[in-house]
Simulated assay, not measured.
Amino acid sequence: MTADDSYGRLDDDNYPAYTMGRAAELLGTTQGFLRAIGDARLITPLRSAGGHRRYSRYQLRIAARARELVDQGTPIEAACRIIILEDQLEEAQRINAEYRRTAARHTADV
């Protein structure tokens, strides 16, 4: 792997570039909070060769949303469930929009 390959990964939203300590620092939260949302299966950090948790930018955005809800008084388990449901709703809306585009093309072809 060349240095250019390594730097290219930094642009990858899913590359696990952040240690637990750095992730907690960036989010202004504790490592315990990150463990809790991991235990709730909101995010599943990758593990380094040494077994340490590593987080991606995408996972940090999800964790930031959870932190926002918890800071507003939502229990952590409920915050995780809300985020999971929001994600499912977004995916369903995306699928529906694709279905409508396909149906519209099909109708126009008839």
Results as ranks from 00 to 15, higher is better:
Ser56Asp: 11
Asn96Gln: 12
Arg53Ile: 05
Ala63Pro: 05
Glu68Val: 01
Leu42Arg: 07
Ala66Thr: 04
Arg54Leu: 15
Gln59Arg: 07
Glu68Phe: 05
Arg67Cys: 03
Leu85Tyr: 10
Ala79Asp: 05
Glu86Tyr: 04
Thr74Leu: 14
Ala64Ile: 06
Ile83Asp: 01
Ala92Met: 10
Arg41Gln: 13
Leu85Phe: 06
Ile43Ala: 00
Ser56Phe: 07
Tyr99Leu: 15
Glu90Thr: 02
Arg81Glu: 14
Ala79Trp: 02
Gly73Ser: 07
Arg47Asp: 06
Ile83Val: 03
Ala79Leu: 05
Tyr55Val: 02
Leu69Lys: 10
Ala97Tyr: 02
Leu85Thr: 07
Ser48Val: 12
Arg94Pro: 00
Glu68Arg: 09
Leu89Ile: 12
Arg61Ala: 09
Gln59Leu: 03
Ile82Gly: 01
Gln88Phe: 05
Ile84Tyr: 05
Gly50Asp: 14
Val70Phe: 09
Gln88Gly: 05
Glu86Ala: 10
Ala78His: 12
Gly51Ile: 10
Arg81Cys: 02
Leu60Lys: 09
Glu77Pro: 01
Glu91Gln: 13
Leu42Cys: 07
Leu89Gly: 00
Ala92Glu: 07
Leu69Cys: 09
Tyr99Cys: 02
Arg81Trp: 04
Ala49Leu: 13
Arg54Asn: 09
Tyr99Arg: 12
Arg61Phe: 04
Glu90Asn: 03
Ala78Gly: 04
Arg54Asp: 04
Pro45Trp: 03
Leu69Glu: 11
Glu68His: 15
Leu85Lys: 10
His52Trp: 13
Glu77Gly: 10
Ile82Tyr: 05
Arg54Gln: 12
Glu77Val: 13
Arg67Gly: 14
Thr74Glu: 13
